[in-house]
Design a protein around this nucleic acid. Structure first.
Lengths: 341, 341
DNA sequence: TTGAAAGCGCTAACAT
DNA sequence: ATGTTAGCGCTTTCAA
């Protein structure tokens, strides 16, 4: 194992002081071009890279962002991680991953994160006691909730506009002339589930209608299958002719149950509308009408809010972003006559 | 912003030395139960957590693992990250993510990683010049290639047995009595692509057969659609009646093109076999016959090899794991008469 | 068992 | 512009 190359070693080789080396590797520090050249050369020859950890100790900035994920509704997660990581990497930050088992205690994970001196924390699709997040902020580490909102001042969150997105889904189904509308719910601990249900119910209420059937899929494959069977494996007049499902992952499962287990046609027998616009929604085999989460914009907002809070804490106010969520009309739900976007 | 709590502060409150505090938080260090108690109490009250970075500086172990990902064939990536992260977390390690843009230079990313003093590196589905990986190892940082092999001694890699897995797919299609067998290739820079093609060709050769048609999809959605059209949008007698596709992501796209663009039936008109057993393969809408990557076992091997190399470098030899990859027979390819697993 | 002291590799005054 | 110096928070000898 070769010895680690330190700034001191580079300094000796270049015939300068160790601080000169430090300056050369510090953007915006002053050094003569002769020094820069000598140091760069020596560093190159030795294969020197500044030790980020040592730098973090003295500067108080680790350039690491803690990302907490619990796999409850992770359908669009790869996309999120890729965009998040790329956006942060461009700004010189990197993502340190912490898995919070859905059952386990998120609070412990947060405590563990703090030990790594991360500069900020992103909680993706995680439900937690908000006081712990506030505690992080009190210790100087800003927190952003991604895809979860929390009714607490002082906490920044970024979601899609779940209430309004779901409302559009409801209006679309109502306008489509469906007689019996069902709802398949996600895990009720998630604000996304609650907001989507509220938006859907609002749309029906505005039309003087109400939900005909409701089952719970918990964002979970098997439970969603069961939920779909409970809702649709009944006589035709007892069965919804349209259903809004709390996310695409569950919606595709519902479509599979309808078509392959029950032999029903979509949308002729049952219209299905989902939420997320996850990749499979666009696949011809599903062609799912759904509400789009604008992930790229949500990630931009998340990174923007976090970096502002880190780099200019003085003028960082808590932000609450509910990104507009357009209905994407495809073929899984009957289209109302004369419907225009 | 509250001040950071240091061991020194805890020491003062507990009325002991700072080293005593350190010992209490160092597993296997000696401290009287009275000291332990006093220190734990003070730490609790102050909300103290040891600074992992400071610890890393002196111990030379950061307890961070660099994970490099390039998004070329990331179909089963979420699963991998979850398992990887969980397995490492159990051992007290955490994953620091580095995105290597498929176009960009992986070598630069590796240089950057080294600055973070990671204890080990996992390269997932990344092709790189192997000398840089060897350079990392020379500097004392072990590297494991996940889902990529490289013909270099001294480098540990973990893949599925791509040659043999693909061979089974070929034998299955041959036994199924297909007359014209096609192959849709992935990106040729990937060892997985090359090995899968070799295995498939081997199976045909052993039966005195050869590939009837070959197109390249590059593990890329649009290019795969085009490839499928080039291969199948031709007169019936010029078109394969069976096709092996280098991964499931491309295989589902091929199925969509066959059924929805060309109006062909699967498997009556064309049999399709994929590779990976990614989640959509099991969905009723695809019901794809495929070769399974045993991701959980591959992750176990990866973590095992890496931790051995980190914690007991003396007896760590480079490992080469080609995990057996069973054919999973579903409904997208004609099943040979009397076929048994 | 415990405390004092050295030092991990670096940045940031401060002095020159 | 550059060198000197003092830590960042911790682990680890070394003495006691």
């Amino acid at each position: 194992m070769a010895a680690r190359v330190t700034a001191q070693m580079v300094a000796e080789r270049a015939g300068v002081s160790q601080s000169a080396v430090s300056r050369v590797f510090t953007p915006g520090a002053s050094a003569s071009s002769r020094t820069v050249e000598k140091v760069r050369k020596a560093a190159e020859e030795l294969g020197y890279r500044p030790n980020v950890l040592a730098r973090a100790m003295v500067s108080g900035r680790s350039r690491m962002i803690g990302l907490v994920v619990a796999y409850l509704d992770n359908h669009f997660f790869p996309d999120v991680l890729e965009r998040l990581s790329n956006a942060l990497q461009e700004q010189g930050y990197h993502v340190l991953v912490f898995m919070a088992s859905p059952t386990g205690n998120v609070d412990n994970v947060l405590e563990e994160i703090m030990g790594y001196q991360v500069d900020g924390i992103i909680m993706a699709s995680v439900a937690m006691s908000s006081d712990i997040a506030l505690r992080c902020q009190a210790r100087g580490v800003p927190v952003v909730l991604f895809n979860r909102s929390q009714d607490i001042d002082g906490l920044t969150w970024v979601t899609s506009d779940n209430v309004n997105g779901a409302r559009q889904a409801g209006e679309f189904l109502v306008a489509g002339g469906h007689e019996r509308l069902g709802y398949i719910a996600g895990w009720d601990g998630a604000s996304t589930q609650r907001d989507r249900e509220a938006g859907f119910r609002n749309a029906l209420a505005d039309a003087g209608r109400r939900i005909f059937a409701r089952e719970v899929g918990d964002f979970h494959s098997e439970r969603t299958q069961d939920a779909a069977l409970r809702m649709f494996d009944v006589p035709a007049d007892k069965r919804p002719d349209g259903v809004f499902v709390a996310n695409d992952h569950m919606a595709t499962i519902v479509m599979d149950v309808l078509r392959f287990d029950l032999g029903l046609r979509v949308p002729e027998d049952v219209s299905v509308v989902g939420y997320d616009d996850a990749p499979p929604a666009a696949w011809p085999a599903y062609n799912l009408t759904t509400v789009r989460q604008r992930v790229n914009l949500m990630v931009e907002e998340t990174v923007g809010a976090l970096l502002e809070a880190i780099e200019t804490p003085k003028d960082a106010k808590p932000r609450h972003v509910a990104m507009d969520a357009p209905l994407i009309v495809r073929g899984s739900a009957r289209v109302p006559e004369g419907w225009t976007t």
